[in-house]
Every structure is written in C-alpha cells, then in structure tokens.
C-alpha cells in the first residue's frame, strides 16, 4: 500500500531522493532533509495522495550514527492508510525546514523537538522552548544528556537514602 504511495512520489521527485524500507512493522520512506517541505506539500495536496491528517512528529537520537532521525506520521482519510516519512539530520548542528506552513499542527511538535532534542527548525514562526523553562540548559531526550545538578541554586536531585 505504502509502496503505491512511493511510486507516485518517485514519479515526481526521482529515485535518488527517496528510499523505501519495509524491514520494520510500519514501512517507511527515507527522504532527503532538504526536500522535506516540498514533499509534505505534495503529499498533502496531491489529489491521488491527500495525506491531510498530521498524526505526529518524533525525533530519535542515534549517537553512534551521529544523527538525529525525524519521523513523520501522516494519515490519509481517502486511502485510510498511514504513511511514515523519515529524514536524518546531523547531530552536531541539526537544522531542518519547518513544515508548520503545511500543517499548523506541526508547529507545536517542532517546538517540542527543539526543546527536548535541540533540533532547529528554520522558517518557524515561534522557535522557542515549549515545555521546559526558557533558561534550561541542554536537551533532555538526547542520549548523552546529563541532568544539571542545580537549577537557579535549587538542587534537582533527591537525596537518596542508601
């Protein structure tokens, strides 16, 4: 089913930009980070695809591959199917184009990712921390994150009884 979506996408974007994987439970399409916005616009408005529902956006940190993988879950009411898009950015300077203009719902997901994983989304209307305080140091969902022991002179860890 997703392979059909893949053939439509390949017709438009060429085979170099997209890779299709079905070794996981939900097959996914790997995309170039530069093309993510164009691809999302195409997927949302193309009459054969119509992926109008934005389910979720997740970032996964892979320190050994030195990259952060973004996972987009889209849903098409027309085909009653979900499509998974993946794209990877470097861990050192993660930057990606925002898709807030395609689905407004993505706006807060991107802010959350900026907050917890430190991915910078360009052309976002309000790129700042969402859940943590503005002056928090670090991005907790990174695998090498170490919790600061003090925040504004307050101890963050509990005194353990051992």
């Amino acid at each position: 089913m997703i392979s059909k979506v893949y053939t439509i996408l390949v017709d438009r974007f060429g085979e170099d930009a997209l890779l299709y994987f079905d070794d996981t439970l939900n097959p996914y399409i790997q995309v170039n980070p530069e093309q993510i916005q164009m691809l999302c616009i195409f997927m949302r408005y193309n009459p054969a695809l119509k992926f109008s529902f934005f389910f979720s956006l997740c970032g996964v940190d892979y320190p050994e591959k030195n990259q952060i993988t973004m996972v987009y879950h889209l849903f098409s009411m027309k085909q009653k199917k979900m499509c998974v898009l993946k794209t990877s950015v470097s861990r050192k300077n993660p930057e990606l184009e925002s898709i807030e203009s395609v689905w407004k719902a993505a706006g807060w997901f991107e802010r959350e990712l900026y907050d917890l994983l430190g991915v910078n989304f360009t052309n976002h209307s309000n790129m700042k921390r969402l859940l943590l305080p503005d002056d928090w140091v670090g991005h907790p969902l990174r695998k090498d994150y170490e919790e600061p022991s003090f925040y504004h002179d307050m101890e963050t860890s509990r005194n353990r009884i051992s």
Binding site: S56, C58, V60, H73, K104, G107, W108
Partner: peptide, 25 residues
C-alpha cells in the same frame, strides 16, 4: 511511537496526545 533496539527497555517512546494539539489551536 515505540522504537526498540534489542535490549529490555524501549530505545525511544513518543507519546502523541489529543490535548497537545487541542491546546495549539
């Protein structure tokens, strides 16, 4: 969204909830 890596604990878990998107509107 659950990612496993062969160990006995999740590698990554993303929770998408209804209130999160409702709040953004």
């Amino acid at each position: 969204y659950l990612v496993s890596d062969g160990s006995d604990r999740p590698y990554r878990l993303k929770i998408k909830t209804g209130s999160f998107t409702a709040m953004s509107i």
